[in-house]
Design a protein around this nucleic acid. Structure first.
Lengths: 379, 379
DNA sequence: TCCAAAAGCCCCACCATAATG
DNA sequence: TCATTATGGTGGGGCTTTTGG
């Protein structure tokens, strides 16, 4: 600053200089009282230029230790925080990740979303959510579009339906996409529990108890998890030379489990059943109760998910536990990997759920079904 | 930069170009092939100036109908969408709303969040989520801080705990705060069902059936909903001159309902019970089953919330339905009101939940109930 | 009715320059 | 003199908003 001290009003430092300079693209006026401080406020406060502040903020080299300290102090004193918006503008990235949750807000997806949310926060990301109750291709596409415009750095899809994956794959979002998908899906990054292994666990538990006629109530056809679980059940059955019957398909809701239960009981073949999720298990249990079929006496039931209520079903449900919270964290970990090096990022799909044995499973009764009259209270 | 560029080496790529351009603050070069189109692309395409495009975009007056159409066409053809980031920068507002969901991802809050999300999208807002599994004052404060930095235009809190409200009230976020809160809370905008009215509904249903000794299993002390429901139950009881006993407090989870059920049965006083939510009802039902107490024969049970599984409890649960989806939409409606005129925005707290009568309630033991279960397919 | 031009918004990149060794 | 540092200057980034034709 060539002889700035010559002028009498030298006290106004940088601001005065900027006024004199005239060019004035930089060095905006002092912050208005109410406003949040900007980099320039910090710069003035520390007696440096605004991009020295920037350097300190971004941990770039080329700043003397003393200056660095001074700037940091100024930052602290003004409790300045860089504006995410302006950063996004300049960097052309936002520090945020888009989360699309499509489908009913069931325990699983909601928990996973929450886990992801927390992990994202811990990783310094913001999450921008675009959820929809039902998966519709157009709505989904538009959600992706909106997120892309917001410059999210990655998009996460939590939705068990295959269609969601297909839609995402059909779009070139321009940003990496990480999806919860239990089936192998080329072209995107996947995170998932090993559903087939979980189903196998459930099935083998029943086989070990001595069951030979094991039915399966599956989830909807469009669900990847349902398909994988179905595959796992069939594989376990086949491994043991047991008959594999066509599963009854439900829609994850208790009502469909109830309907499936009635069909199952009318048919009378099975001595045990692996149900696609806990809600359907509840419906099925209800059907058993109505029909006077005792569980596990007459029929063993295994669920899937281990929702918090499962331990209080009547009887307490044996089920396969998925730790959705850690699934959510896995999603974030994968996003982080992908952001670091898209090509080298490994999928996280081998985590195996855990069998939780409670009271709804027991060895098969060697005698034919004896039906007590309906609803007879135990008393 | 005094004439430095006069040198002959103009050909040195981008740097040289930028040097040559000199003044050109406005009118950026044509969009690079891969890039998203900008306002200038649209302007050129439509043969107008960039801020005519802006006017059309923002529905400002002073644009001839024909021009407007032409611009809209150009927008459509280029499938242009304004950059939210740049908009946020220029408008000093972000078009986004912060959503904080604190607590377990239960059906109610998750559904409400989803409904809010969809409503926000429909209203043209983006939602930035900052959720936490457990409500911690510091974490909550930090979440608010982050959202404020992101320039969200409002903050929504979905969390039944009173502490969350207290924390938010203690912060001057600088943006309006809308919270789901069933208790009267000065200083912020509230949305909620009328919990007390819902509880009253449940209680009066039992009274109408002839019950005189009605117990209550309440939610946790810090829950506003729990307190309001408790108030509703007590008020209804008092209105009919019935004894109001101290409720047993649970924590919303099935396990606590189970424990409460055991205490209730050990005590033996009540012929009916209003339970704070459906999950606890499930636990309580489980306890009854274990104790050989028939529901509703020996004890009538009313839940609260009507989670999707409630109809398949054994017996199917009579409960008070809250439409969480519409609660979510109410939240957004309130946010919209508040953004329009903070002072005049009405709270939305008078929506009354609805009683759903199923099989867990009946008159108190006049005769042993003999009920045939619905449609047991006794072929 | 419209355009032109320019000033922000707040930050980051790149380049230039000053102060050191 | 020439590398190194440490620092400052300038130009976007895409949009909204004036001001003045």
């Amino acid at each position: 600053m060539s002889g700035a001290d010559a002028s009498a009003r030298a006290g106004d430092g940088p601001a005065g200089a900027s006024g004199a300079a005239g060019a004035g693209t930089s060095a905006p006026a002092a912050s208005d009282p109410a406003g949040v401080p900007t980099m320039f406020d910090v710069a003035r406060h520390a007696g440096v230029s605004h991009q020295t502040v920037s350097r300190v903020l971004n941990d770039l080299p080329g700043v003397a230790a003393a200056t660095r300290v001074r700037v940091r102090e100024a930052i602290a004193e003004l409790s300045y925080t860089p504006s995410p918006t302006a950063r996004a503008m300049a960097r052309r990235r936002s520090g945020s990740i888009g989360l699309i949750q499509a489908g009913r807000p069931d325990y699983g997806p909601s928990s996973a979303a929450l886990g992801f949310n927390e992990a994202a926060r811990d990783a310094g990301y913001t999450v921008s959510q675009a959820s929809m109750r039902t998966l519709d291709a157009d709505v989904l596409r538009e959600a992706v579009h909106r997120l892309v415009l917001q410059r999210v750095e990655a998009i996460v899809l939590i939705s068990g339906e295959r269609e969601g994956i297909d839609v995402l794959r059909g779009i070139d979002a321009g940003v990496p996409v990480v999806a919860v998908a239990s089936e192998v899906e080329p072209g995107l990054h996947r995170v998932s529990f090993d559903q087939a292994a979980g189903a196998r666990l459930a099935t083998e538990h029943l086989i070990a108890l001595g069951h030979r006629r094991i039915a399966h109530v599956a989830g909807p056809a469009d669900s990847m998890d349902a398909a994988e679980r179905r595959r796992g059940v069939a594989a376990a059955l086949a491994d043991h030379g047991l008959e594999v019957r066509e599963p009854i398909a439900g829609d994850w809701l208790a009502a469909s489990g109830h309907a499936a239960g009635r069909r199952l009981l009318a048919d009378g073949w099975a001595s045990a059943v692996v149900v696609g999720n806990d809600q359907m298990s509840l419906g099925l249990l209800h059907a058993c109760h109505e029909a006077g079929v005792s569980v596990p006496g007459d029929l063993s039931v295994v669920g899937f998910d281990d929702i918090p209520e499962a331990a209080y079903f009547t009887p307490a449900l044996t089920t396969v536990r998925q730790d959705f919270d850690s699934l959510g964290r896995d999603i974030m970990a994968t996003v982080a990997d992908v952001l670091r090096d898209e090509a080298a990022a490994p999928d996280r799909t081998s985590r195996v759920p855990e069998l939780v044995v409670r009271e709804s499973t027991a060895p098969p009764r060697p005698i034919p079904l004896v039906r007590e009259s309906a609803g007879a209270p135990r008393a």
